[in-house]
Amino acid sequence: MNPELIVFIIFGTVSIIGAIAVISFRHPIYSALSLIVTFFSQAGLFVLLGAHFVAAVQVIVYAGAIMVLFLFVIMLLNLGTLSAKGALTGKLKGVAIILGILLAVEGVYIAVRALKNDTAVASDAAKEAAAALANKPIETYDIGRLLFSDYLLPFEVTSLILLAALIGVIVLVKRDKQPEN
């Protein structure tokens, strides 16, 4: 059996199980931990796809920063007692799951079907060109060069977004220092 397939199956299964656990655990802290597991297996999949840099950034940003923030807020609000009150899930749970399954079928259908059409239409020469490209590994160097040449403007805009978020958060959670008269 193809070793890549084995690794894919392991990481894929773990990430699906983790994702299902996120939406089924009662307590948010367990959900957060399951989400970390999912993020990790996704980082594994990125490594499998040859995207080492993205895999490292995935762990640093998602697992190392974003989820710590989630845990921090869960602990700060001490939500343990809150979720026990019931009303954990909405009233139309069944409908939601049926709609979700429909969406999944649709997504899988598009993923498989669109590619079939794609490969059917393409000429042999195009196929060969695509195959040659697909074997070319993408290095961190390529990402860096693109980021600071063709995509410099989006990159700068991203920094503006981060700055806006920074200011927004400070404004949102700032407590009034003036004593109430």
């Binding site: 996120v22 939406i23 939500l79 909405g90 969406l103």
Partner: peptide
């Protein structure tokens, strides 16, 4: 792509059924 679609769907279902 199929794995990605499945993960996305699980996310959508989560948004629909959870209230937290």
């Amino acid at each position: 792509l199929v794995l990605s679609a499945l993960l996305f769907t699980i996310g959508v279902i989560g948004v629909l059924i959870r209230r937290n």
